[in-house]
Design a protein around this nucleic acid. Structure first.
Length: 403
DNA sequence: CCTCCACAGGAAGCGCAGGAGT
DNA sequence: ACTCCTGCGCTTCCTGTGGAGG
């Protein structure tokens, strides 16, 4: 390939990327796009909206608790209502402020309060202040706004499992010291059993309004995908069995609409990459594998060294059998660290790391009692071995340990 | 029925980095 | 410069436990 060919090749690749034959607007399929209309969620939206509409009349909206599994439209519904509310509020010149915090990414009380404060226009250092000081500042800030503050805590289960419910309690109680302003909390959770973990006072206060989002069934998913595909794809870019397949695959996973949309988007990308002008069911199959690979790569590569070593140990131990126990894993892990000349972490820490890997969905760890032979965790590999291995091999230290 | 294995997992606390107030 | 606070990753020490084998 000479210089001219190279140039024209690059030109082709780039202009190919510019004019897609398949996507009209790919962004309409990304998880953070909030559509104008959410099908099958009219009831829930109406209830959230009517609760929040109190803010327009200048009184404090009830706290709301929103339940539902992943991909059932909770976040989208809340964001949609919030967006509508802020628009209306500025038309009417009513002071309404909103704050959205995702507690999966910000799972400490400090970060949550800091984020709320920041979104209300306060400045907060990454660390260094006491929680009490932070609260004082937030309370002062809210008070000076002289309006209704609505705080959305998405995936609140992560915060509560890690830190307990006292932050929630304090947020709710803040109203007692406020006169011209108020704080309302919208808690969104994937975990339906979360309520049991709450302090009764928080429970009754947060449960002023409870809204449930049931999973979508395959028919509903299909209709959602069809609506969305009209925005995202050119006409006739999809073969007729693509949407039903995506819907069916996602319906199998507790009706997760986000999954369905991810599949559809990735399938489109697969088709586009291979230069086709139509998305086929083969692309959907390929998209499935690709999504899994991406997800695994993302988690595994960001793991700290010892977690990677433990994961590698689990992989080794389960090469020729199904499962391994904590003790065996600790042994294998110790051998690996010794051969690298590293210190080991304690077994206590290893059990925690195993639980963390479990929560990430890379492995499954189940506590079993084997009677005379003690109580332990039985660990199996959950994600695809090849994906995990590929991601682990990116780390030079670990690469030659695997083979 | 009791024992006792091989851990699970709670509680406390340590050392560090990063930052605030004084 | 000093003291006090946080989160984070980790250790130390600890109590708890389901059930096979005696």
């Amino acid at each position: 390939m000479d210089e001219k060919d190279m140039k024209s090749m690059l030109h082709d690749v780039f202009s190919e990327a510019m004019k897609s034959k398949i996507f009209k607007d790919r962004d309409k399929l990304t998880p953070d796009y909030v559509p104008e209309y959410l099908p099958f969620r009219e009831d829930q939206i109406k209830r959230i909206a009517s609760a929040l509409s109190q803010a327009l009349r200048g009184s404090r909206p009830n706290n709301i608790f929103v339940y539902g599994l992943t991909g059932t439209g909770k976040t989208a519904a809340v964001k949609l209502v919030i967006r509508g509310l802020t628009e209306r509020a500025s038309e009417l010149r009513v002071p309404v402020y909103t704050s959205y915090v995702n507690c999966r990414q910000r799972d400490t009380g400090y970060r949550v309060i800091a984020d709320i404060l920041e979104s209300l226009g306060g400045k907060v250092p990454f660390t260094g202040l006491s929680i009490a000081e932070l609260q004082r500042r937030l309370s002062k800030r809210v008070d000076s706004l002289r309006g209704r503050v609505i705080v959305v805590l998405d995936e609140i289960d992560f915060l509560i499992k890690k830190q307990g419910d006292d932050i929630l309690y304090k947020l709710i109680r803040m109203n007692e010291e406020l006169s011209g302003s108020s704080v309302s909390v919208i808690g969104i959770t994937n975990d339906l059993n979360l309520v049991d973990m709450l302090d009764p006072r928080v429970k009754s206060s947060l449960g002023e309004e409870e809204i449930v989002f049931p999973p979508y069934d395959a028919v509903q998913l299909r209709s959602i995908l069809e609506d969305r595909s009209k925005l995202a794809f050119y006409e006739n870019a999809l073969e007729s069995d693509v949407i039903p397949l995506c819907a069916a695959l996602a319906a199998r996973e507790h009706g997760d609409a986000r999954k369905a949309l991810d599949l559809l988007r990735m399938a489109g990308e697969m088709a586009e990459r291979s230069g086709k002008d139509k998305v086929t069911r083969e692309d959907v199959e390929a998209a499935r594998g690709e999504l899994e690979k991406d997800k695994v790569y993302e988690v595994v590569s960001s793991l700290p060294l010892h977690a990677k070593l433990i994961l590698a140990s689990i992989l080794n131990l389960t090469e020729d059998r199904e499962s391994a126990t904590t003790g065996e894993i600790f042994g294998e892990y110790s051998r690996k660290t010794a051969s690298l000349g590293l210190e080991t972490v304690t077994q206590r820490r290893v059990t925690d790391i195993i639980s963390e890997l479990d929560m990430m969905g890379l492995i499954s760890a189940r506590v079993v009692s084997r009677g005379r032979y003690g109580k332990t965790k039985v660990v199996k590999v959950q994600a695809s071995r090849e994906s995990i291995e590929a991601a682990l091999k990116e780390d030079e230290l670990i690469e030659h340990l695997l083979k």
